[in-house]
Amino acid sequence: MPFDPQQRYVHLAEDGHAIELPGGDAFWSLPAAQMEAFDLGWLVTEFECSEDWPNWERHPEGDEYVYLLTGSVQLLLELPDGLQTLSLEGRAAVLVPRGVWHTARVSSPSRLLHITRGRGSEHRPVRADAALTMAS
């Protein structure tokens, strides 16, 4: 049956099975023990973004596929040799390497599709001084 990918996520298990899951807050508020069941395999999510991401994130267990469906964003990657800004407009995709901290500045309301491994994902807030660096 068709479903709205913003309201339902999909977990692609390592054994080849796909499981449809409640999306949004219903997924992210699951108890840690339930979330661990989705650490192996790949999580497919879609988000609507109307403002800059409040956090940096990284995924040490795998690369992340980020697909801009509509809108315009600047994806910032914190690489060993400095901050790299990738401008995405209309429809575009990026592979974020495993373990690279990344965040996004939203230039216009956007919809993004993400495919990543959940295990070990980390988040840290975008600090005011980092926001100034991003603005330059």
Rank of each mutant, 00 (worst) to 15 (best):
Pro2Phe: 00
Pro2Met: 00
Asp4Glu: 05
Asp4Val: 00
Gln6Trp: 02
Arg8Thr: 06
Arg8Ile: 06
Tyr9His: 09
His11Thr: 14
His11Ala: 05
Ala13Tyr: 02
Ala13Thr: 05
Ala13Glu: 10
Ala13Lys: 09
Glu14Asp: 11
Asp15Val: 06
Asp15Glu: 07
Ala18Gln: 05
Ala18Val: 03
Ile19Pro: 00
Ile19Gly: 00
Pro22Ala: 10
Gly24Cys: 07
Asp25Asn: 03
Asp25Ala: 07
Asp25Arg: 15
Ala26Leu: 09
Phe27Lys: 08
Trp28Leu: 01
Trp28Met: 01
Ser29Lys: 10
Ser29Thr: 07
Leu30Gln: 11
Leu30Val: 12
Ala32Cys: 04
Ala33Ile: 11
Met35Ala: 15
Ala37Thr: 08
Ala37Met: 12
Phe38Thr: 04
Asp39Leu: 06
Leu40Thr: 10
Gly41Tyr: 02
Trp42Asp: 06
Trp42Tyr: 13
Trp42Ile: 14
Leu43Phe: 04
Val44Tyr: 12
Thr45Leu: 05
Glu46Lys: 04
Phe47Ser: 07
Cys49Val: 11
Glu51Ala: 03
Glu51Gln: 12
Asp52Leu: 01
Trp53Ala: 06
Asn55Ser: 08
Glu57Tyr: 05
Arg58Trp: 11
Glu61Lys: 12
Glu61Ala: 11
Asp63Leu: 13
Tyr65Thr: 08
Val66Lys: 11
Tyr67Trp: 15
Tyr67Pro: 03
Leu68Ala: 06
Leu68Asn: 14
Leu68Phe: 10
Leu69Pro: 06
Leu69Glu: 06
Gly71Ile: 05
Gly71Ser: 06
Ser72Lys: 12
Leu76Tyr: 13
Leu77Tyr: 15
Glu78Ala: 03
Leu79Asn: 08
Leu79Gln: 11
Leu79Gly: 09
Leu79Pro: 10
Gly82Lys: 10
Leu83Trp: 13
Leu83Asp: 04
Leu83Thr: 14
Thr85Ile: 14
Thr85Arg: 14
Leu86Ser: 09
Glu89Ser: 10
Gly90Ala: 11
Gly90Ile: 15
Ala92His: 15
Ala92Glu: 15
Ala93Pro: 15
Ala93Met: 11
Val94Lys: 14
Leu95Tyr: 15
Val96Ile: 15
Pro97Trp: 13
Pro97Arg: 13
Pro97His: 14
Pro97Leu: 09
Arg98Cys: 09
Gly99Trp: 15
Val100Ile: 12
Val100Glu: 14
His102Pro: 13
Thr103Leu: 04
Ala104Gly: 09
Arg105Leu: 07
Arg105Gly: 01
Val106Phe: 05
Ser107Asp: 04
Ser107Cys: 10
Pro109Tyr: 08
Leu112Gly: 00
Leu112Lys: 07
Leu112His: 07
Leu113Pro: 01
Ile115Ser: 03
Thr116Cys: 03
Thr116Gln: 03
Thr116Ile: 09
Arg117Val: 05
Gly118Pro: 07
Arg119Lys: 03
Gly120Asn: 10
Arg124Asn: 01
Arg124Pro: 07
Pro125Ser: 02
Pro125Asn: 02
Val126Asn: 02
Ala130Lys: 01
Ala131His: 01
Ala131Phe: 00
Leu132Met: 03
Leu132Arg: 07
Leu132Asp: 02
Thr133Pro: 02
Met134Trp: 08
Met134Asn: 01
Ser136Pro: 01
Ser136His: 14
